[in-house]
Amino acid sequence: MIRIGLVGAGPWANMFTAPMLAAAPDVSLDVVWARRAEAAAAVADRHGATAVGSFEDLLSACDAVAFTVPPDVQAELAVAAARAGRHLLLEKPVGFTVAAAEAVATAADAAGVATQLMLTYRYTAQVRTFLARAAGARPGYVRVAYFGGGALDGSPFATPWRREAQAVLPDLGPHTLDLLEATAGPVAELRAAEAGEVVTVTTVHEGGARGHVAISGTTPGPGGVLEAEAVTTAGRVHLADPTPYEPGDVQRTIVEEFVRTVRGARRQPLDIHHGVRLQRLIAATATAIRTGEAVRP
């Protein structure tokens, strides 16, 4: 069994990560630590784990660390966890800056630990089917859009960092920019703008394809809406919104891949270096919005 330590005890830890780790075979949710001791104790009690009083105590009692904390906190603690030889199950984005994400990658590489990024949609059957269908031909145009209300009052995801200016970029940018590059290839150049709390990005890809992304975290309505479309030499491929997906299926896939990655049986493409790439795309988008000019990531 791979012993997991969970850092964080907020909404996502309660809704998704803790139940995922507690129910999975081959791993055990052993310890929980959070800034609020009472919240950590509640999560631990619910899932048969032990709440500990410090991050150092957590590291001493686990083989791998799963994070459900704000990006800046995750980046700092992930470096320490990697240096302690602990494998990393990371949330998106890895941090708030490219430098912070690179620091995690450097520490993980030096320690030789496994890393995996929790880009939830990438573990759904719908997205994987879309990518497999699109991979069979050369793309000419790819469109990805995500309109959600996660930053609105009343949402469990309306945490302080998601309510900051341009927080939609680190929040929803990883999902959409990841899906865009997975379909059309690496972005060579992008332009971006923001109007009415909607960020739009137009892209030129190394293979010649063109792309478009639109995201908003303040769109009223039920749930999030993620859509994608690829126009390829073989025709049009469409991804209807995979929300709601079956959480149990996604949770099993995430843990199964993490276990195989830790054991050296899988090369995980959604690793810390993929997280650094997404951080570069987010930073390039922010620069393009600020300057109004084309940016090369």
Rank of each mutant, 00 (worst) to 15 (best):
L169D: 02
G85T: 03
T159G: 06
L119W: 00
N14P: 03
V255P: 13
L169G: 01
L190I: 09
P269D: 01
T124W: 04
A184M: 06
V43K: 06
P11S: 15
L29W: 01
I282G: 01
E38S: 15
A24C: 07
R35K: 08
A167C: 05
A82G: 12
R277V: 13
T129H: 09
A182D: 14
V79R: 10
L281Q: 02
D171W: 14
A167E: 13
V73H: 12
E56C: 08
L59Q: 11
G224Y: 04
R35M: 10
P25G: 14
R280S: 11
P170A: 15
A234M: 00
G248Q: 06
L119R: 09
A188M: 02
G248T: 10
D45C: 00
W33M: 05
M118L: 13
V201L: 11
A132I: 00
R260K: 14
R263L: 14
V201R: 03
H47I: 03
E102P: 02
G112W: 09
T124H: 04
T17Q: 09
G223S: 11
R138A: 14
P244N: 08
D45V: 00
H205P: 07
Y146C: 13
M1L: 01
R3C: 05
D63G: 14
Q126Y: 00
A192T: 08
E38I: 04
W33G: 00
R290S: 15
R266Q: 08
V213G: 05
A114Y: 02
Q116I: 07
G208C: 09
L180F: 12
V31M: 01
G275E: 13
L131W: 01
T203P: 00
F157Q: 12
E164W: 05
R138G: 11
T233E: 15
L117H: 03
R86E: 10
R290Y: 04
A110G: 15
P160G: 14
T50Y: 03
V255Q: 02
A82I: 10
R263A: 15
H205Y: 12
D249M: 12
A61C: 12
L59M: 06
G154N: 05
G10N: 08
A265L: 15
E229L: 09
C62P: 00
A209W: 05
E197F: 09
G112H: 13
T50W: 01
G223W: 00
R122I: 12
I2Q: 02
V168P: 09
R162Y: 11
T159E: 15
R138T: 13
D153C: 03
A111G: 07
P71D: 14
A110Y: 01
R128T: 02
A84F: 07
P156H: 07
V79A: 10
A80E: 14
H47L: 02
D171Q: 06
L21C: 09
L21F: 05
A134N: 05
V94C: 05
